[in-house]
Design a binder for these strands. Structure first.
Length: 874
RNA sequence: GGUCGUUUGGCUCAGCUGGUUAGAGCGCUGCAUUCACAUUGCAGAGGUCAGUGGUUCGAAUCCACUAACGACCACCA
């Protein structure tokens, strides 16, 4: 059974083998975990990566965090499901494929036609998906592959269609007109995040509509002013206050316009004339003003960026031509007051650089404000806000809760239709003015299918339940199957940048479909930036392929480097050096294992993990207590989602306590086989969620079971009075080493240490041999009972080291004594420090002793303040 | 413009509800090494916690303001 382990751990030889073993065990699937019925369920749905490109290092961070949680909870004995999937990423994917086709053949999607184009998209999707799945597995992700889904597979299509129909029937989905970002060249709407803003010089014209109009307005786009219906001013603006509410009929460039004066807080009195001509059809903000003030909408520009037909001489003109004509008209009529150059932001299409025309257009919307019977008369927005308010959904870090609520509160209806080909079809047919919403093409001739597709967030918003068998698993408001077991899920873990885009949508969709929250906790990670703090991107070429790193250092090292030293919600920098350091740590753990496995007996390896070995020496008691504390600490940090803290404590234990001290002691004090094995096994368990491969590899050399499903140690945080005593030994030894180093004592020089004190005297007598042997270079250790002997010894021999311990003073909490005690302690500390300064060869008192006293001093002082204050208030 | 974040030794970052001596890791310096591990061990140097003011017995931590950088949202009529 016992195997020889290599001197240096090599991930490449082990990781794939181990992953295969896990996968073959079938235990990624919670149905195969042999658990009692009472076992808790624990679910995380993987945020489906876009299939637009292979995974980057940010995805690796996400996988590392989620796999950590999943493995931890699986070891806790919970029915743990981590559900994989990928996202079709409608617009993003279509764009990538479009660009690819354009590059290779020079053809646009319109040249290819809808069907041919979609074929190309699917080809692309299948390729990238394979890469993504490979990358995900390489990270060691314990995802249940039997439940793999795609946001655009057949089942999800059905779910989306059902959702659309349900929402339509309830009046949540409606068709309406709204301003969209229209690209006249691409002939499509653009999502807000696809619009780029570019600084440009523009001319700002200040003029009046006609001579009788009292207020001058400023604009950079005179041609759209043919569609003005109002002038907006700030209600606080003294100049215009008196006009608010009045209506005027004006003759502007031969067009009769009805202009109402309205007030709006968006108008800045300092800009231009402080008055804004409201053109609802061609400006976002004006549209909102028109909605708020119930104003009519006059369309001026059409889908080809030409002036529409009902504008006399201007009809059919390009916007530049119309602008020139209007400016000339204003000059001729002496209406133009000013013409100045300003710098403003122009919105352009991110693909073809064409200026965006904001245009009103018929779109499908989800109402966030409609009150719903199924939600007890509340709206989706209200329910989502309530969930955050009541902390049914908790945010990590907490500050994002405010962020979420602010954004949610200001949310407008969500436009869900997109003029692209790749995506979920909208289950709507049109015949003239008739609209049919349903599952299939209606009977009869002349029906045409809606050409648009759904916003990608519509399907990903349903992710927590569409992946668990909704709608089949939900009949008459009763959940069944996976849905009843795994929904709501426990944690959603994603980047803070899609808190609003995705997380908020999931919450609303889940409330609508199931009247419950989709998850209990939202953990938001930061962005992984490059070494210089820049965002990684393909165009900059500073991206990193996780596969390269895994190949070089192993998945464990990559995972650990991403899990440690980062704080939730804050960006972190990726630096290959860090991975290297973690690789070294993993090798350290490997060698600890190697040493222990090589030095203990065969029978010790087989001992039952549930039986805690008996401590025989002080060091044993210390390390076992430290392990206890570690289990308690690590568990708590993991429960609180403080992964970095948990890993810090584990590292500290592994390297500084176990390897540096206990293993050294174990070389002197023999007969520790049971304890060593016990420590090692526990350590492997505790580390497993972080670095699954190396821990499982070691485990496999001593056990036929999988570490992956070995029980997490029980959290027995027992109090132990002796917790400090081994620490004193450590400090004594460290002080001696220090002394040697500071006083530049040659290693060959023989040294004696004199030690005296009360409380730890016995301890140090019993540890005399250890002190000598633990790399201190001492030939003799003398324990003195009083300070006198030390004094004599010091004056007699130069080059010897005195270590002294000071006894504890009893804590008596009577108020009268507090002051006296404080003074006393201050004196003692002062004395010690003075002594340390004066006598060069008396190097240092063990810090723990001084610290114990200082802590006490602090607590005395605190008490004292309390007492004094209570006296004051009397 | 709105909201939020960051600023701590040469570098990358911790530091929860204020507690006296601000922690890691890397780097640097000195020393060690036939030892489970040079992917190692031991020790050392290095910080007025961005600035100013305030609250407090006590502030890296709380409050206000300022500065630099960054993110997100809105958007310049």
């Amino acid at each position: 059974m016992k195997q020889e382990l290599e001197k240096i751990y090599s991930p490449n030889e082990n990781e794939d083998k181990i992953y295969e073993k896990w996968e073959r065990s079938g235990l990624f699937n919670p149905d195969n975990l042999n658990l009692p019925k009472s076992a808790k369920d624990y679910t995380i749905v993987l945020p489906p990566p876009n299939i637009t490109a292979k995974l980057h290092i940010g995805h690796s961070a996400m996988l590392a965090i989620e796999d950590l949680l999943i493995r931890y909870h699986r070891m806790l004995g919970e029915r743990t499901l981590w559900l994989p999937g990928t996202d079709h990423a409608a617009i993003a994917t279509q764009n990538v494929v479009e660009k690819k086709i354009l590059m290779t053949s020079g053809k646009t999607r319109h040249d290819l036609g809808r069907e041919k184009f979609l074929e190309e998209v699917w080809k692309f999707v299948n390729e990238t998906q394979a890469t993504i799945l490979l990358q995900t597995k390489k990270m060691g992700s314990s995802l249940d592959w039997s439940r793999l889904t795609f946001t655009l597979d057949e089942e999800r299509k059905r779910a989306v269609k059902t959702m659309f129909l349900d929402m339509y029937r309830e009046g949540v989905i409606y068709r309406g007109e709204r301003i969209v970002n229209w690209c006249p060249k691409c002939h499509s709407t653009l999502a807000d995040d696809e619009v780029e803003h570019r600084e440009q010089k523009a001319k700002l014209y200040t003029f009046k509509y006609d001579q009788n109009f009292p207020i001058a307005i400023s604009t950079t786009r005179p041609e759209t002013k043919l569609g003005d219906v109002a002038v907006a001013v700030n209600s606080k603006d003294e100049r215009y206050k008196k006009y608010i509410g009045q209506e005027y009929e004006v003759d502007f460039c031969g067009q009769k316009l009805k202009i109402k004066i309205i007030s709006d807080y968006n108008v800045e009195p300092e800009f231009g004339t402080g008055a804004l001509g409201v053109t609802p059809a061609h400006s976002m903000i004006d549209w909102q003003m028109a909605q708020a003030n119930d104003l009519p909408i006059i369309k001026v520009v059409n889908e080809d960026a030409l002036i529409r037909n009902d504008f006399g001489a201007y009809s059919g003109l390009k916007i530049e031509e119309a602008r020139e004509m209007i400016v000339n008209f204003l000059i001729k009529e002496n209406l133009l007051e000013k013409e100045e150059e300003i710098i403003n932001n122009l919105s352009v299409c991110y693909r073809c650089d064409t200026p965006i025309e904001p245009l009103p257009s018929k779109q499908w919307f989800i109402s966030v404000d409609k009150k719903l019977d199924r939600l007890g008369g509340k709206s989706l927005k209200e329910k989502a806000l309530e969930a955050a308010e009541k902390k049914d959904i908790q945010f990590f870090p907490e500050r994002f809760s405010k962020n979420f609520k602010d954004w949610m509160f200001n949310l407008h209806d969500w436009c869900i239709s997109r003029q692209i080909w790749y995506g979920h079809e909208i289950p709507v047919w049109y015949k003239g003015e008739e609209i049919y919403v349903g599952e299939k093409t209606p009977e009869g001739d002349g029906w045409t299918h809606d050409q648009d597709t759904l916003d990608t967030w519509f399907s990903s918003g349903m992710w927590t339940f569409s992946t668990l068998g909704w709608p089949d698993n939900y009949k008459n408001n009763i959940k069944s199957g996976d849905l009843s077991r795994f929904h709501p899920t426990q944690v959603i873990e994603t980047g803070y940048d899609i808190l609003t885009l995705w997380v908020s949508r999931m919450i609303m969709m889940s409330f609508f479909a199931l009247q419950e929250i989709p998850f209990e906790k939202v953990y938001l990670h930061g962005t992984v930036l490059d070494k210089n703090g820049k965002k990684m991107s393909k165009s900059k070429g500073n991206g990193v392929d996780p596969l390269d790193i895994i190949d070089k250092y192993g998945a464990d090292a990559l995972r650990l480097s991403l899990l440690m030293g980062s704080t939730p919600g804050n960006d972190s920098r990726y630096n290959e050096e860090v991975v290297e350091i973690k690789r070294n740590f993993i090798n350290k753990l490997w060698n600890i294992s190697r040493y222990i496995l090589g030095s203990v007996s065969e029978s010790a390896l087989k001992q039952d993990l549930n039986i805690r070995p008996r401590a025989k020496t002080l060091a044993d008691r210390w390390i076992l207590l430290e392990l206890n504390n570690l289990v308690a600490g690590a568990s708590k940090h993991l429960d609180d989602l403080n992964f970095s803290f948990a890993a810090d404590e584990l590292s500290e234990f592994t390297w500084s306590k176990l390897a540096d001290w206990y293993l050294e002691v174990a070389k002197i004090e023999k007969d520790k086989d049971e304890i060593l094995v016990y420590l090692l096994k526990n350590l492997l368990i505790l580390w497993h969620p972080f670095i699954p491969y190396v821990t499982e590899t070691v485990w496999q050399s001593i056990s036929s079971d999988l570490l992956m499903v070995t029980a997490w140690p029980k959290n027995t945080s027992e109090e132990n009075k002796e917790s400090g005593s081994f620490k004193v030994l450590i400090e004594v030894v460290t002080a001696i080493r220090n002394a040697r180093s500071v006083n530049k004592i040659e290693p060959s020089q023989k040294l004696k240490a004199f030690i005296y004190g009360h409380k730890y005297l016995d301890l140090l007598v019993s540890q005399r041999e250890n002190i000598k042997n633990l790399k201190t270079g001492l030939s003799e250790v003398t324990i003195c009972e009083s300070g006198e002997k030390v004094e004599q010894a010091i004056t007699a021999v130069v080059g010897e080291i005195e270590i002294y311990l000071v006894g504890e003073i009893d804590v008596v909490k009577e108020k009268e004594r507090l002051q006296k005690e404080t003074a006393n302690l201050e004196k003692i500390i002062g004395l010690q420090e003075k002594k340390l300064q004066n006598k060069e060869f008396i190097v240092r008192a063990p810090e723990s002793i001084v610290n114990i006293e200082k802590e006490k001093l602090a607590s005395y002082k605190k008490e004292l303040f309390k007492v004094e204050n209570s006296l004051k208030s009397l």
